[in-house]
Design a protein around this nucleic acid. Structure first.
Length: 203
DNA sequence: GAGTAACG
DNA sequence: CGCG
């Protein structure tokens, strides 16, 4: 019987179908204004398999020259990120345990062959407030471990409407996406998986 | 560095 | 070959 690492909370089915549809509609608007693009690894410039955009005051970006960082504008359009949809603020309020509003929502789109290697969310100045992650569309195999890269990890499936909270001891847990299960959801017409990650950046 | 590959 |  395997147990989630301390501070990692998985809430299956947190969003019902109609909430999920509302969220997809809101993200459609975000993407229309701030198009998905493919970020690059620092130094090597190797593109990630995941496509990204953001909403909220700040967005997480990475490229060859600048590395991982938060900035207020879309790297390609130069425009400020679109505002965060109200539904995301509601979800944050319900599960984050924080009184402050989230400053950033990273939108990750996974096609069937996209992956995300094991990593920590540690580019925020605020490393105490929880990180909230929302899954929409196709299921994935999610992996999570502890604060050290070489520690023990475990994996479990995330489905559309699930929420994961990395808080307290889990805030700096290594995590990643091993695989996408194609055609496991009808939420997104063209398939794939959307992950929305809400974060506080400044203390 | 959120990358890959390889190994058991 | 897939999984960890």
């Amino acid at each position: 019987m395997q147990v989630l690492p301390k501070g990692v909370r998985h809430i299956p089915g947190f969003l019902d179908r109609s909430r999920q549809e509302q969220l997809v509609e809101a993200i459609r608007d975000v993407v229309a204004e701030a198009p998905l693009y493919r970020p690059e690894m620092p130094r090597t410039g190797k593109p990630l398999s995941v496509r990204m955009t953001n909403c909220g005051a700040l967005g997480w970006v990475t490229d060859r020259e600048g590395g991982y960082r938060y900035q207020a504008k879309h790297p390609q359009t130069g425009c400020p990120w679109p505002p965060m949809p109200y539904l995301l603020l509601e979800i944050w309020r319900a599960v984050s345990g924080s009184d402050k509003a989230p400053e950033a929502c990273l939108v990750n789109f996974y096609s069937a062959d996209a992956r995300m290697g094991l990593h920590q969310d540690r580019d925020e100045l605020d490393l105490e407030t929880a990180v909230v992650s929302i899954s929409l569309g196709d299921s994935c195999l999610f992996r999570v471990g502890g604060k050290s890269r070489d520690g023990q990890t475990m994996s479990f499936k995330l489905e559309s409407g699930d929420v994961v909270v990395l808080g307290g001891e889990g805030r700096l847990a290594f995590h990643g996406v091993d695989r996408i299960y194609p055609n496991t959801s009808t939420l997104l017409r063209n398939g794939g998986r959307l992950n929305l990650t809400l974060r506080r950046v400044n203390p």
